[in-house]
């Protein structure tokens, strides 16, 4: 009898201790989130008290050695790279997703899906390397001369082309998921009023899967926005507002990569670069939250 109660007591002690640990781990998820934000805000304060936010965001002069911190070139570069790579990647990704969800049959479907997964798994730095070997000479020696531009190959367009490859499998898998969640009846009902298969996709499926696809695009945009290694290898790293898509430029992330090492000893520069991190965090978090809220709201309205 006493043996049994000891055993029970031990089991309950384990239960008690483990639940404290799990609770701590549960709140840890929120803690990580909060601590990252707070740390970055705290270390950004020096530069934020010294300069106004508007000044930082709109000034075009970036010269940390002389305490000029204008993020305009990097912001323009980031928006250009994100915009161009989404403009190239998104249509290709959505069309590929339509192929996978609506056209492909096994075994092709399985094979192509695994290829898309493989593409998504390849590390960014490998894309950067292939970009250097293939895309840089392509842009520098063939594409730029066609447009009559002098280019060494590295620049906004080069980084964007490779980023569009990286973002594609990401959007494909989320879009395929949304399309496959739609009931077969939706396709049958639309076909039965005499729609062609493309009309079913265009008018009904893309609309019904719209919330999911829209959130995939926003999440994809967030990915490109925060991408670091590929732009750092391919954009040419010149902190000037780019004139054409062939110009070298800088993004918010590459500015961190390029300047952190050497200028880390200057406290204000340090703070300015941490502020870039904060800026990235805020924008990407906003995109992520927006994607999720939008999806939830639209789904309630369309009920698919």
């Amino acid at each position: 009898m006493s043996n049994e109660s000891t055993r029970l007591r031990r089991r309950l002690a384990v239960e008690g201790a483990s639940s404290v640990w799990f609770r701590a781990a549960g709140y840890f998820a929120l803690l990580v989130f909060g601590v990252i934000g707070a740390t970055l805000v705290w270390k950004s304060l020096p530069v934020l008290t010294e300069y106004s936010l508007v000044e930082l965001l709109t000034s075009a002069t970036w010269d940390p050695a002389r305490n000029s911190f204008g993020f305009m070139p990097a912001i323009v570069g980031t928006l250009a790279v994100s915009g161009i790579s989404m403009a190239i990647g998104a249509p290709i990704a959505i069309l590929t997703a339509i192929y996978l969800a609506e056209y492909a049959t096994d075994p092709w479907k399985t094979v192509i899906s695994s290829f898309v997964d493989a593409l998504a798994a390849i590390p960014g730095v490998v894309f950067g390397l292939v970009g250097l070997i293939v895309v840089v000479p392509f842009v520098g020696d063939y594409l730029a001369p066609v447009f009559g531009v002098d280019s060494a190959g590295q620049g906004i367009l080069t980084a964007s082309l490779v980023m569009s490859i990286i973002v594609t499998p990401f959007i494909v898998s989320l879009t395929v998921e949304s399309l496959e969640a739609l009931p077969l009846e939706l396709r049958e009902a639309t076909l039965s009023v005499g729609a062609t298969e493309w009309e079913v996709t265009k008018h009904v499926l893309l609309r019904a899967a719209g919330p999911g696809i829209l959130s995939a695009l926003l999440l994809g945009f967030g990915r490109v926005f925060g991408a670091t290694i590929v732009p750092a290898m391919l954009i040419g790293s010149q902190t000037l507002v780019p004139e054409t898509v062939f110009s070298p430029g800088q993004t918010l992330t590459t500015i961190i990569v390029n300047d952190f090492g050497e200028l880390m000893s200057l406290p204000l520069t340090q703070s300015a670069l941490i502020f870039v991190g904060l800026l990235l965090l805020v924008v990407v978090w906003l995109f992520n939250f927006a994607a999720m809220l939008l999806r939830r709201r639209l789904e309630r309205r369309w009920q698919y």
Partner: peptide
């Protein structure tokens, strides 16, 4: 074309399925 054929024959599925 198959859509022309389907047009003459309507179909209502088992699950109530509104278009979005």
């Amino acid at each position: 074309p198959v859509p022309e054929i389907r047009r003459k024959v309507g179909y209502v599925p088992q699950t109530p399925t509104p278009l979005p």
